[in-house]
Design a protein around this nucleic acid. Structure first.
Lengths: 291, 291
DNA sequence: TATAATCAATCGATAAAACCGATTTAGGAA
DNA sequence: TTCCTAAATCGGTTTTATCGATTGATTATA
């Protein structure tokens, strides 16, 4: 039993005339006869009565038609659904973002959703490690994060922009007039940093180590909004990429001096996994929006 | 898109391993690869990600699988349904009966229903002409009636039994002691007959004509139960086949003398129309029951 | 009533395609 | 590295879907 045969049968049922049905199907009458016969052989029951040159449906034919129609419909529904998927009329995008890049995503998200309102989103915030783990387990389509120390062969990397590492401080402190600040100066300030799992912390700790500096880290915290809350009190300072506090009114970012004190924001996805049409479109819009 | 391909795809989806799926489907891995590829080409989207030697489902694959599964299911449901039909676990039998033969049908009906309780029945009582009309319009599978004057080529006839024409009279009348009665005697009695559309009436009127007799028909009526009601009063007599009043307690049948005074009960069906399994089984049981 | 037209079935031939085995390619394991 | 394994690819074979022509039978019509 094949969909082809079911379609032939349904057309023959509709027209109750093999010759016309064959014409409507763009096949020869001979072919139609044979395919119907084959279907009947498989079901071991005639679907049509052959009364002289006329045909009528048998009971079996009439009842079987219901199932045949549904089978054909489901298949064509599936085809239609895939087409919708390609036209961005359905589908889901799962994005992982490190907190530092949340503004980049939200801006693109708002724009994209107004153009393709039917596309669903799942946004996952987390550390780079967490997100990469999810990416490897096919739970995410793409992640937005800063460059990794070691690049992996099965990932596809797309650079977005660079952002300097910066001392983040309350707008109220006396530091805000400085154009830039050295790592040594930073190390003497009371610091509250993201937990060691965060890539920014990993990155900056390496820099301190290299310069043999001992920063005064009094707080480690794994939630950035809470961290920013603390910084706003003026009692602590922290170190983040400048992008992270782009839209924060009460905070100020002072770039840190040094050659390697900039980081590159990247898109990371799996090289060999088919990239959904919707994801492609979203990423294009996101990158376009950065220019 | 063919059911074959959908089945292949679903098996591959289930095992996530082309080699194993091919083995489970009793086809070569090469064939499976090709058929999946063909399906993907038609949908214009990959269903599987090929990550090294592993495969995983794409979003499209995962969503399409729902439709594929339903399409396959509907087709196999159809097949199963037809099998049930052949096993008499479903289906409908439409029988036309002339009133005279109702006991024959009801007896078989009760017996058959206890063996095949899932089979539906539609019983249509009517005159031979009415029933034959319905038979020709495929509204009935088979009819039970007495032999027709003219047999038609596109009908299939099966004889059941013969039954004498009889004068039917109330059990109270003085006639009940007679073993038989002549047509001439009958013609002198007050008669209530079925309407002229009934084959029994057509039949007996021809016999009267042949013998140049003028029967005293005071009532014609097209409903047999009402007719019998009238006969029970003893005021009238009627002429029916003996079978007609088989189970009537208050009535008595006296066979009419003469060579052609018996009628043959028959099954009539359409020659070139497929006879349902259920109908076959029912008619077998009916005929078996007459022995 | 003969004749023509029509329709489904059948036949033989052809083109299409499903399928297989062998080979290639490449990832993953030892 | 080398071996093992899984999917893709290639070339050839078998199967089958398809066609055109014909047959057989029914219906319409002249």
């Amino acid at each position: 039993m094949e969909l082809r045969q079911l379609k032939y049968f349904l057309k023959a049922k509709e027209l109750l005339n093999f010759t016309e049905a064959a014409a409507a199907l763009y096949i020869s009458q001979s072919t139609l006869s044979q395919q119907i016969k084959q279907l009947e052989d498989e079901l071991q029951v005639p679907l049509f009565n052959r009364i002289g040159k006329r045909i009528t449906l048998t009971e079996a034919g009439n009842l079987f038609a219901l199932y045949a129609q549904q089978s054909v419909n489901k298949a064509s529904d599936g085809l239609q659904f895939i087409k919708d998927l390609n036209n961005l009329e359905t589908g889901k995008i799962a994005i992982g973002v490190t907190y530092a890049l949340r503004h980049v995503v939200t801006k693109a998200l708002i724009l994209f959703s107004s153009e393709y309102p039917k596309i669903q989103f799942e946004i996952v915030f987390g550390t780079s490690q967490e997100l990469i783990h999810k990416l490897n387990h096919f739970e995410l389509d793409v992640i937005l994060t800063f460059e990794e120390i070691a690049s992996e062969a099965h990932f596809k990397y797309r650079e977005l922009f660079t952002s300097p590492m910066a001392l983040v401080t309350s707008s109220e402190t006396s530091l805000i007039h400085k154009k830039s600040i050295s790592l040594k100066e930073v190390s003497s300030l009371p610091l509250a940093l993201p937990s060691s799992g965060f890539s920014t912390t990993l990155f900056i700790n390496k820099a301190f180590e290299k310069d043999n500096l001992n920063p005064k880290v009094t707080i480690e915290i794994n939630d950035i909004p809470t961290l920013l809350e603390l910084i706003k009190t003026g009692k602590w300072h922290t170190i983040l990429t400048k992008t992270t506090i782009e839209n924060e009114k009460d905070l100020h970012a002072i770039p840190i001096k040094g050659q390697n004190m900039t980081r590159t924001a990247m898109l990371i996805s799996l090289k060999e996994v088919y990239e959904k049409k919707a994801v492609k479109a979203f990423l294009n819009m996101l990158m376009e929006n950065l220019k």
